[in-house]
Every structure is written in structure tokens, then in C-alpha cells.
Design a protein around this nucleic acid. Structure first.
Lengths: 227, 227
DNA sequence: GTCTATATTCGGATAGAC
DNA sequence: GTCTATCCGAATATAGAC
């Protein structure tokens, strides 16, 4: 599936992700008027990405945020309960999307296709939602302590799913016990590499499809080789 | 070279790294009495790693730091000019060590050995100095703006050096233009994986030597294969 | 060189008018 | 629902005694 096809079917693009966010987090949003909330949520989240990617979430003051969103402090607090909630909302959104990628991939019977889908769709989705995934990676420590575990589980889910699929597909007594775990780790590292260092890929001619193809090729090369 | 051999020859272990740090940064250290400065530097840096790995550098107040070091605010400032200086010192130390790894590897004639050395010694050194490298990765944004570029150059140096060595060793017209860059990127991702997610490897039976061997194997597997 | 006490700024959050 | 003005605690940094 090409990136363009994936993107046009993707459920969390543009405005729609803020509707999903409102539905997911209505208990943390003071106003129940969806039209106001969604509009302000979009401003707040986008400004958070802009400012915190430069200086970090904690360093970003609410005054910075209000300058960027052109909201007043009152306008901000009438929408969102506290600064912490911004980070929690982003974490929950990323978790939702990641979970759907894994579930959709596992729904089919062909295990190799499931491996391909997890890798390709993860790279596609993290490209479309790059600021969301980037934020969560670097700001996990900004979350309240009881939310931090929830953040680590996201990446653990992808690694263990991949590892299991590889083992089921290639199970081979000649491979040592770490072999498939190492490959799954490498695959995740390559998925993260792209959304964590976007400046490397912005003006490059290495298209996202080539990046996906190289990653998948590397995985099968490693998995299919004697140890 | 085994990890134990590397570690016992390593120039920046234990107390000696704080002596090196004092020499590197004496202009930012108020007192000229080396014995006091080195002792306090060690306390301050270690406490910085402890607190900021949990909550982040900016969130760590100097009161937190002084509680942890058992220094007073006055004691802290009599040693170090400002909070920012802590982060800059760590960055410069990491840059020094990284530069030496690359230079030592390039000093020999055998290019394959140079590739092996860069990968193995990077993984060894980042294990010994894990908190230093971890801190720099996550706190680059906490550095003053003019120091941030300097931080990105560190990882760029390793990728481009590896990429060049791979191209010189394997140059092959059948490989596409991104091939060696992709492999070098993967190698760096695996180096970083280990020091960025230490909890994954603390209680595992995947020894550091196996990790190094798997990474090197993956690199040659990818480099030696037709595209 | 190290301490305590303090100056000063800035942060998150709220009250109350409109 | 949005704004302005304000509270209050916490941050960095310094002054001055010992």
C-alpha cells in the first residue's frame, strides 16, 4: 500500500483527530460545547508542538502558549483543566493510534503480511502524526508518574508483537534466544529514527516508501539468515 | 576486544572523568582550587543525572540538586557559574569522548576493523558513560541555542564516518545511493537504543558483547547483499 | 569555601467583570 | 465563553556572616 493510499484512508487526519481527542477526553475538557472545544483544542495542541519541540514542554509557560494560540489565560482554562492534561491527551491519542495499527495488522492470517503492515503502517502513521509521536517520546518524563508506564507500554506492544510474529514465522532451533528480539528491536529503532529526526528526511530524496522498503528488507535479511 | 579489556583501558572512568572535566571547563568553574572543585563537580554531575533522568533537567530545581548533593546554594554557586553550565559541561565531555572513538578508529589502515571499532567502542563507551550520553540525548533542548548545534554534530560525525567507511569498503554500482547511508543510520540507531533504554538491558541475559556482535553482523549482512 | 537569609522574577492557577 | 487583574508559591541567583 502506497503512502498516499494510506494517508487518504487514515482516520486521524487534519481536523478529525481533534474530534477524536474531544471524544476520548471529554471528562478533562470543562466546556461541553463541542464546537468551541474542538477549535481551541486544535490551537492548543498545535501551539504545544511548536513551542515544546523547541524548548521542551516544561519550559513552555502557559503565557507562551497563550501568545501562540491568541487565547487568554481564561480562555485556556475554560477549555482545559490544567497544563498536565495537554501531555496526557497527546499520550492517549498516540496510544489509540498505535493500538489500532497493531490490531489491524493482527486481524489478518498471513503472518508475513502482518509484519509488513506493522512496519509500513507505523512508519506512515508516525509520519502523518510526527509531532504527536515526537512529543510523546521526548516528554514522557513530563507526564504524571502514573501515566509514564502507560507511555512505555506503547512501544513495548510493537516490539513484542513483531518479535512474536517473527518467531512464529521463522522458528528455528539454530537461532539463539535473542535473535528475534534483536531484529524486532532494530525494526522499532528504524521506525523511531524517522519521526525522531525529521530534519534528516525533510529535504532528502529518500522517499518514505524507499525507507519502508529498506527497513522491511533488513528485517527479512536478518531473520532468514543462519546464526 | 572484550568489554572488560576496553573498560580497564578507558581513560574516563570513575574519578578521572571529573578531573578531565575540570581541565576542560576551568573557565566556568569559579574556584581554582582543584581539589574542592573536582569533588563538588562529581557530586553535582551525579545528582544531575539522578534527578534529571527522572523529571528532566529544567524541572530539576537547584534546591533539588542541593538536597541531593548535600551542598548549600552558596556551595553550588561557589563552584559553578550557573545551572546552564552543568548541561554544557556534560555536552562537551560527551563530544570529547565521541571524537576520540572516531579518531582512534580511523587511525588504523584496515577499514573493516575501523567499522568494527567504531560500533564496538561506541557501545562500550556509551555503556560505561550511559548517564552522560542519555542526558545529552534528552536534554539537547535544554542547552543554550548556540550550543545545540554542537550537540547534533556529535551523532552526525558517527553516521557520516560509518557511511564513508562502508562506501569505501563495499563500493558497488548496483547499490542505490541511499544504501550505505541507511546502514550507517541503522548502526547508530542500535548504538543509541542500548543507552537510551537501559532498563531493557539491565536484567537481561543479552550481554553487551552479544549485542555488539549482533549489530556488527547486521551491518555486514546488509552491506554485503545485492540490492 | 561554605553557610543562611533574602532579593527578584516568573510560573500555574483563579476570581470576577462582561 | 472569554477577558483582565491578581494571588501565591517556587525558581534562580546573590549578599554577607563565619
Amino acid at each position: 500500500m502506497s503512502f498516499n493510499d494510506y494517508e487518504s484512508d487514515f482516520a486521524y487526519r487534519d481536523k478529525s483527530i481533534y474530534h477524536a481527542l474531544f471524544n476520548l477526553h471529554s471528562q478533562n475538557i470543562k466546556t461541553k460545547k463541542k464546537i468551541f472545544a474542538v477549535n481551541n483544542l486544535e490551537k492548543i495542541i498545535k501551539a504545544t508542538f511548536k513551542v515544546s519541540s523547541r524548548i521542551g514542554f516544561h519550559e513552555m509557560s502557559l503565557r507562551d502558549l497563550c501568545r501562540e494560540t491568541e487565547l487568554s489565560m481564561g480562555g485556556f482554562y475554560s477549555c482545559i483543566a490544567s497544563k498536565d492534561v495537554i501531555a496526557i491527551m497527546i499520550k492517549d491519542m498516540v496510544k489509540l493510534v498505535s493500538g489500532e495499527i497493531v490490531n489491524n495488522a493482527l486481524r489478518q492470517n498471513d503472518k508475513k503480511q502482518a509484519i509488513n503492515d506493522i512496519i509500513a503502517h507505523s512508519i506512515y502513521a508516525t509520519d502523518i502524526l510526527q509531532p504527536w509521536f515526537y512529543f510523546l517520546y521526548f516528554e514522557t518524563r513530563s507526564l504524571p508518574r502514573d501515566e509514564q508506564e502507560s507511555s512505555k507500554e506503547i512501544e513495548l506492544l510493537i516490539v513484542t508483537t513483531l518479535e512474536n510474529l517473527l518467531m512464529e514465522t521463522y522458528r528455528d532451533k539454530n537461532k539463539n534466544q535473542h535473535h528475534y528480539h534483536f531484529i524486532a528491536t532494530m525494526a522499532l529503532a528504524m521506525i523511531q529514527e524517522r519521526y525522531l529526526k525529521p530534519w534528516k528526511y525533510k529535504d532528502t530524496d529518500m522517499s518514505i516508501e524507499i525507507y519502508v522498503a529498506e527497513t522491511i528488507k533488513m528485517v527479512y535479511l536478518a531473520a532468514g539468515t543462519d546464526h
